[in-house]
Amino acid sequence: MSASLASPAAIEALGLEKSYRNLKALRGVSFTVRQGSVFSLLGPNGAGKSTTVKVLATLARPDAGTARVAGRDVLRDPAEVRRAIGYVSQKTAVDLDATAVENLALQGQLHGLRANVLRQRIEGLLDRFGLAQDARRICRTYSGGMLRRLDVAMGLMHRPQVLFLDEPTTGLDPESRQEMWREIGRLGSDEGLTVLLTTHYLEEADALAERVAIVDQGQVVVEGTPDELKSTLLGDTIRVDLKAAVGADRVEQALGERAAELRDLRLDGASLRARAENGERALPGVLAALDAAGLTVSAASVARPSLDDVYLHYTGRTFASAEGDAR
């Protein structure tokens, strides 16, 4: 930990605010990303993740606040920031009328790479992202997963110090997502590259990021390593699936005084969720009590709190319902 504090910050955002007409997209976003780490902004659609990335990538001007990327101020020195960053937006920004080679080449040329470097770099990236076979085909013929991989490769063309990945796996099928995760995991250990990853997949942030900032309604609600965030919630999550949906009063009645050992008891149809200081020890009693009351249990589990629980704890909403609100 002391080593990570010693290394310089690749991204520093301080009090970023931005409004679009009557919508306040950012309400004072602040966070710091250590050089060479993968940092994730996690939040539902419309939380302000993409706007934050756009400000950091010099595409949008904040109404208030400052930010430094790769040691340069994004407002005062945007040209230098652009040299240091790669940006992969939510949309797959690939020219469909060009081949993979042409897309990569243009990206490198605009960053001033010389011809021999350009060629080597293109070959290297095509191999690494499994596109070498199709490198000279028009991108219109590519699958969604191939386009996304090319998109990320384009962001890496000039060996940036900081890479912004705005929802890199949204809309990908599970297989392509796994592949992208492996690739992002590799990026993190790459030559000190710093990655800012936005996502609305809890498990993505959990699996890939060294640190996570949960963003909700234009603010960072909490920030830390996934483990730190989860350990702020004491105890374990117990889940019990009943055979059939029942009313909350029947469950409460069944649990009787055992309910006192449990916190955040929630019943969603046939699925019961609660928190307990020691889940393994609480579960048998809960199961016995339910059984005694004639409620048949079909599955039960004890888990360390997930980022979903953390999100619920800090925002008062489940992740799924926040996603629903945004639509």
Partner: peptide, 14 residues
């Protein structure tokens, strides 16, 4: 613009 290509150009030093 729709494809995000313009933004990508604007993020290069061009």
């Amino acid at each position: 613009m729709d494809r995000g290509i313009l933004d990508r150009l604007l993020v290069t030093p061009t």
